[in-house]
């Protein structure tokens, strides 16, 4: 009898907690957002959707995309929130995204949402490839401050520029796509060939160039603008330069995975992701938001930032990705003997 009583007491203690846990739906969300963004985004979402719990799986864009595609046969993610639209387009091609038009998605900038109906993805914000410029190194080495991509062709930068290898990193491809969009393919190859002479290395990680510039290893790192903001906050003497001659940009976007077991909660998270409240949180980190009329609170971006974005059909460029990368490889990869 005593044992029974004990069990009853134990159950009484456990049950309310269990019930509470059951009420909240746990969504597995794959993301490539920055580490420090995870907590604010999660808090905002959970505050808005009281019965949803966000469980992040965060990694670099390449790793997360590879994981999503590898898991395609049996998706583990319910929602992708904060991943490059290039990755999402690739997944759309593999029929991995659940079509759903979130409430309020029609208000987004047309270029920053899926053109399908129902939509397969919705944009959150834009991020661009930018120049991380180490001012201390620049002083030591007498490097002029670059304000355009073409400025980087100055022989003074020989051996001082690091950029991501487009074959290994989405950031690298994004940068390259921006050049192609702006200059046309032939012009872009010409530019890259000349830039190649100044490049010290093509890194495998998209964030490494900026990290290296921040550590003073090199004067210039071509990376995402987001990366540079984080580093400067830590005290790195770097300036974030958004070249005035047009930058390639990428969107961070949201999508529901086809086959999710929590479709209802996933839809509500997708709704939240395009909401004004969400955009306000994005605005703490990004300068260009998908929803017009929300003022970003992030500091350090030029006012006319959005005009610097290259106006190009990235979807068309993305479709040629394989060929472009192969060409890139043939030009710069194999023969890129280490230079000292």
């Amino acid at each position: 009898m005593r044992r029974l009583a004990l069990i009853a007491i134990a159950l009484a203690g456990v049950l309310p907690a269990a019930a509470q846990a059951q009420q909240r739906t746990r969504l597995t969300v794959y993301t490539a957002l920055e580490n420090e963004q995870l907590q604010p985004f999660k808090q905002a979402a959970e505050a808005a959707l009281r019965d949803v719990e966000i469980a992040w799986v965060r990694d670099s864009t390449g790793v997360i995309t590879a994981r999503l595609i590898a898991e395609r046969a049996n998706p583990r993610a319910d929602v992708v929130w904060g991943l490059s639209v290039f990755s999402l387009l690739q997944m759309e091609g593999l029929d991995m995204l659940e079509p759903y038009t979130p409430a309020g998605a029609d208000a987004l900038r047309p270029s920053m949402r899926s053109d399908r109906s129902p939509m397969t993805w919705t944009g959150m914000d834009a991020f661009v490839s930018a120049i991380c410029f180490n001012t201390v190194v620049a002083q030591q080495r007498n490097l002029p401050r670059p304000s355009t991509w073409d400025d980087l062709l100055n022989p003074a930068f020989r051996g001082q520029i690091v950029m991501p290898n487009p074959n290994s990193s989405g950031t690298g491809f994004l940068t390259m796509a921006g050049w192609i969009g702006r200059r046309g393919e032939a012009g872009a190859w010409d530019f890259m060939t000349r830039l190649h002479d100044n490049i010290q290395q093509y890194t495998h990680s998209g964030s490494a160039p900026c990290n290296n510039a921040a550590r003073g290893e090199f004067g210039v790192g071509i990376s995402l603008d987001m990366r540079a903001v984080t580093l400067r906050n830590q005290g790195a003497p770097i300036e974030i330069i958004v070249p005035t001659d047009g930058v390639g940009f990428d969107l961070e976007a949201t999508a529901i995975m086809r086959g999710t077991r929590n479709l209802d909660a996933a839809k509500r998270l997708a709704d939240f992701a395009v909401s004004r409240a969400a955009m306000t949180v994005y605005g703490r980190f990004y300068a260009l938001l998908a929803l017009p009329g929300v003022d970003p609170s992030v500091q350090g971006y030029p006012a006319e930032f959005s005009q610097r974005l290259v106006d190009a059909d990235f979807r068309a460029i993305a479709l040629q990705r394989d060929r472009l990368l192969r060409d890139w490889s043939a030009r710069f990869d194999g023969k890129s003997a280490p230079r000292n």
């Binding site: 390449g62 590879a66 590898a70 495998h204």
Partner: peptide, 10 residues
């Protein structure tokens, strides 16, 4: 790494 993570070409 390039093929799998960069290009998702398993």
């Amino acid at each position: 790494y390039k093929q799998v993570v960069g290009l998702q070409n398993f």
